[in-house]
């Protein structure tokens, strides 16, 4: 176990190094570059621009800049935002809570709802419910998230006036109830794709388990169907879902960016979009690295948890 963990960690670190090289190269080779926002004002001379470039260390060769950036990052200094000179980690930290709140809520919704749909679809295979769920999941995966968000806003905010159309809370009203009220629409919108994926994987996993010998044994022992379902089938069918949960992180993060834009939710996605607009490269780079770390951690954690939950897979 220890050796396996070490190998996985080393692999993840190597991948992360590669990720940082790719991210750094993309951003620093882009035309315009960080200086273009200073030049855009039109009041600066070339000498001024050169001085700023020198101050920011942008006049050095790219590999030197990369190594310098990497070294500082490892020491916990992710640079400062060009926009307001805040440390990048602090900027990300101040937006992290909103995104996590949104992602955790919709993951919870997707797990509960998706598992329920998947289980029911598997035990009543090819029934009307199963067919509708299959088609429904396909449709849910095909709808652009932002458009679904607009439709939800139109129905529930504009026509019915049940839900607020955006923001995390009403200014001046920080109560929990008010925050939950604001959370409903965006988390449902973000949950759509995950629910569809979750229900499909859960159904497939259930069908794998249902046909196995120990279920037949349980049935021939005369156990009640309900007990077989909850104590034998679902418990085993949930195991591979740990991996699914880990692998859904990139999709979830992409969805969060779009959902946050539609619902003016002050999270990391919005921050990323704004920083791209301002060419605020340290923040963009920081966010790219941060999401990549999240994604890698997610898949690593999923693998490890799978080993914990299923002793058959523990060694290797």
């Amino acid at each position: 176990m220890g050796a396996y963990l070490l190998r996985r960690l080393l692999q993840a670190l190597g991948l992360l190094l590669l990720v940082s090289v790719i991210g750094f190269t993309i951003l620093h080779l882009a035309p315009g570059g960080p200086l273009s926002q200073f030049a855009a004002g039109g009041t600066m001379t070339q000498a001024d621009l050169d001085r700023i470039a020198h101050q920011l260390g942008l006049d050095r060769p790219l590999p030197v800049q990369y190594l310098d950036w990497l070294w500082r990052m490892l020491l916990g200094d992710w640079g400062r935002s060009y926009r307001d000179q805040q440390p990048v980690l602090a900027v990300i930290g101040s937006h992290l809570g909103a995104t996590l709140e949104l992602m955790l809520t919709s993951t919870l919704i997707a797990m509960l709802l998706g598992s329920w749909i998947g289980v029911l679809g598997a035990i009543r295979r090819y029934s009307l419910f199963d067919t509708l769920a299959t088609v429904g999941a396909m449709v849910a995966l095909s709808i652009p998230t932002f458009w679904f968000g607009l439709v939800v806003i139109y129905i529930f905010s504009v026509e019915l006036e049940w839900l607020p159309s955006g923001n995390r809370y009403t200014v001046g009203d920080g109560s929990l109830l008010n925050q939950l009220h604001h959370l409903i629409a965006p988390s449902l919108v973000l949950a759509l794709v995950s629910t569809a994926l979750w229900s499909r994987y859960m159904r497939a996993s259930m069908l794998d388990v249902i046909n196995q010998d120990f279920i037949r044994t349980a049935r021939s022992k005369g156990l009640p169907e309900r007990r077989i379902l909850f104590h034998h089938t679902i418990r085993n069918a949930l195991l591979p879902m740990i991996t699914v949960a880990g692998l859904q992180l990139p999709t979830l993060l992409s969805g969060a960016l779009v959902t946050e834009t539609v619902f003016t939710w002050p999270g990391m996605g919005r921050l990323f979009l704004d920083s791209i607009g301002y060419r605020d490269y340290p923040v963009v780079m920081g966010l790219l690295m941060f999401t990549a770390v999240l994604v890698l951690l997610g898949s690593l954690l999923a693998d490890l948890l799978y080993g914990v939950a299923d002793p058959r897979l523990r060694l290797e």
């Binding site: 990139p250 993060l253 963009v284």
Partner: peptide, 22 residues
């Protein structure tokens, strides 16, 4: 293939937007 793995670590929209600067 490790390069493929590394690129897949970026959520697709983040990657699209970062590249759109080009």
């Amino acid at each position: 293939m490790r390069f493929v793995d590394a690129v897949l670590c970026f959520p697709s929209i983040f990657l699209l937007l970062a590249l759109s600067a080009f």
